[in-house]
C-alpha cells in the first residue's frame, strides 16, 4: 500500500445511481493533473465502475481499500 497525499476526500456514501460517477467526472477536473482524490462510498458496484470510468476518460484508479460498511477509492487525475 503506497503512501500518497490525497488532495481531497469526496463523500459519495449512499448516493443513488449514477451519481458517484457523475460527480467524480465533475470533481476530478477541479484538482491538478497528477493529483489524487479519495472517494468514500458504500456502493459495491463502484469497485468496477470507477476503474472502467477511469479507463474511458484516461484517468487512473491507483488503489481501492475496503472494510465492512466502507469502500475507499483513490483516483488520480491524468488528463
Amino acid at each position: 500500500m503506497a503512501d500518497y497525499e490525497t488532495k481531497k476526500t469526496l463523500d459519495y456514501k449512499g448516493l443513488k445511481c449514477p451519481m458517484p460517477i457523475v460527480k467524480i467526472s465533475q470533481e476530478l477536473p477541479k484538482v491538478g493533473i497528477g493529483d489524487i482524490v479519495e472517494v468514500l462510498t458504500t456502493d459495491p458496484g463502484s469497485l468496477s465502475d470507477f476503474p472502467a470510468w477511469a479507463k474511458t476518460t484516461g484517468n487512473q484508479v491507483v488503489e481501492t481499500r475496503q472494510e465492512p460498511g466502507l469502500i475507499k477509492i483513490y483516483v488520480k487525475r491524468l488528463k
Binding site: P18, I21, V22, S25, S48, D49, P51, A52, W53, K55, T56, T57
Partner: peptide, 13 residues
C-alpha cells in the same frame, strides 16, 4: 460517458 463506462466495465470485469 456513462454508456462508455458500462461498456468498458464489461470488457474489464
Amino acid at each position: 460517458m456513462l454508456a462508455d463506462m458500462s461498456i468498458a466495465k464489461g470488457e474489464g470485469i
